[in-house]
Design a protein around this nucleic acid. Structure first.
Length: 461
DNA sequence: ATAGGGTTAG
């Protein structure tokens, strides 16, 4: 075959990879990418980048790395978009250091990090959810400014959302003012992050004020804006106001989403208004929106809290009938309900069922079970659950220790409880409000002075 | 062809 022939074949291979990506057949696209290499066809960047992007969207970080390495091996030079996409993949997988290292690598390929590169990494830190994450995000921001790359609206949106999720709306508001000072116009995403942040702090007045402000600024609220407000008002028990926002959605020519319905259904469930919750679910079905796992989880939780395990299990059957898969949350709710009814043995069987269903139990699962056994005074079973959790690669977290310490206190084993308290501190786990309450109510009240750092005896930070 | 917002469990 002539060189020209190879050229044509390469173009066709490109088209094939692109076509598969466009039709969401990423597995086939990856196969076409590999085959093209076997035949010696050189794919172009215009098909490799969409493939990388599709793999990132499907959280296939291992395959993203494979494709990236293979591109270099086949001398398909990555460009700034390839790097940004791979960096996004690392961030989504929580591999922040690898993401930062790639920023350095891209320079040796003649690519300069762009505002998108930095925004991606800043967002990665914001979403890591660890203490001091905003400090790291801020460090990247400073680095980008020092490299003469100006933050844009997206940069501010990422940071504002990060601070809001860190329960620091005042820091978010300072950034909001700063972006306006820099003549960057807040958009609907900026307002949505702030409204959601205030709603999660229970500050619905501030959230409503922002809704007014955005309308004055001619930024149109969308369904996400209303969902955040509905959630905020539901959480403080103002169901009537939440329902009014639901009506506003249609009044403004918008369409309520599955999240809108789920949020309101959950609000009714949490306010012990199961009949309203069911009316809302009927309305949702009437409007052509079908229930998903989250809908069922909210309703099942509601019925369980109401002590109505019969209705809860009817819904579980309905899920199976309709082909809506139970997830980790469904199981955790059911396990919690059984444990509350002192049926921890039955709950333990659900743990086995989770593995059969291919679900990986979370910390919540194990902690809930341990709490159930502790409350039944069965510390041996609780400790077995802990061993099983650690065998599955989950390390004890603050809630695990709280549950076990409370269990030991309940049996009057203050000395052993104290040992666990020390163990958690040694492991660098930071006691929370619940830990302090246990120490105060269970240990100090019984005249036991915890043999630990003095700061624990004082009031919580 | 690359970056940002809304719902459920301890």
């Amino acid at each position: 075959m002539s060189i020209v022939g190879f050229g044509y074949c390469s173009i066709i291979a490109d088209m094939l990879v692109l076509a598969y990506v466009k039709n969401s057949k990423t597995g086939l696209a990856l196969e076409a990418f590999e085959r093209a290499g076997d035949y010696g066809f050189r794919l172009s960047i215009s098909s490799c980048n969409p493939l990388l992007n599709a793999l990132v969207k499907e959280n296939e970080i291992g395959k993203v790395e494979d494709v990236y390495k293979e591109m270099i091996r086949r001398r398909v030079a990555p460009n700034v978009i390839s790097f940004n996409t791979v960096i996004h993949g690392f961030c989504k997988a929580g591999k922040l250091q690898k993401a930062v290292d790639l920023i350095e690598d891209m320079r040796s390929w003649g690519c300069s990090p762009s505002v998108i590169t930095y925004n991606t990494v800043i967002d990665g830190y914001c979403k890591m959810g660890k203490a001091g994450k905003m400090y790291k995000a801020d460090a990247i921001l400073k680095e980008m400014v020092s490299k003469k790359i100006q933050p844009n609206v997206v940069t501010f949106n990422i940071l504002i959302d990060g601070f809001c999720k860190d329960d620091n709306c005042s820091a978010a508001m300072r950034l909001f003012k700063e972006m306006k000072r820099q003549d960057l116009s807040p958009n609907v995403i900026t307002y949505n992050s702030l409204i959601n942040g205030f709603c999660n702090e229970g500050k619905t007045e501030e959230a409503s004020a922002l809704l007014d402000e955005m309308q004055d600024a001619n930024v149109k609220p969308n369904v996400v804006t209303y969902n955040a407000l509905i959630n905020g008002f539901c959480k403080i028990g103002m169901l009537k106001e939440a329902r009014e926002f639901f009506d506003d959605i249609t009044d403004h020519g918008l369409i309520a989403s599955i999240v809108t319905y789920n949020t309101l259904i959950d609000g009714y469930c949490k306010s012990r208004k199961m009949e309203d919750a069911l009316v809302m679910r009927d309305l949702m079905l009437e409007n052509g929106v079908s229930s998903n796992t989250c809908t069922y989880n909210c309703l099942i939780t509601g019925f369980c809290k109401d002590g109505n395990r019969v209705e809860a299990s009817k819904l579980l059957d309905e899920m199976e009938e309709k082909g809506v898969r139970a997830d980790i949350v469904t199981y955790n709710v059911l396990i919690g309900a059984l444990c509350r009814d002192s049926e921890s043995r039955k709950a333990l069987r659900l743990l086995d069922e989770m593995f059969e269903m291919g679900l990986k139990p979370s910390h919540v699962t194990y902690n809930t079970l341990m709490d159930g056994f502790c409350r039944e005074g069965n510390l041996k079973a609780a400790s077995n659950v802990r061993m099983r959790m650690e065998r599955e690669g989950r390390r004890a977290n603050v809630v695990t220790y709280n549950v076990l310490i409370k269990g030991l206190c309940g049996k009057g084993k203050l000395q052993e409880a104290n040992k666990l308290l020390n163990e958690m501190l040694e492991k660098g786990l930071i006691p929370n409000r619940v830990t302090y309450d246990i120490v105060r109510d269970e240990m100090m009240d019984k005249g036991f002075i915890p043999d630990i750092d003095g700061h624990l005896c004082n009031s919580p930070p």
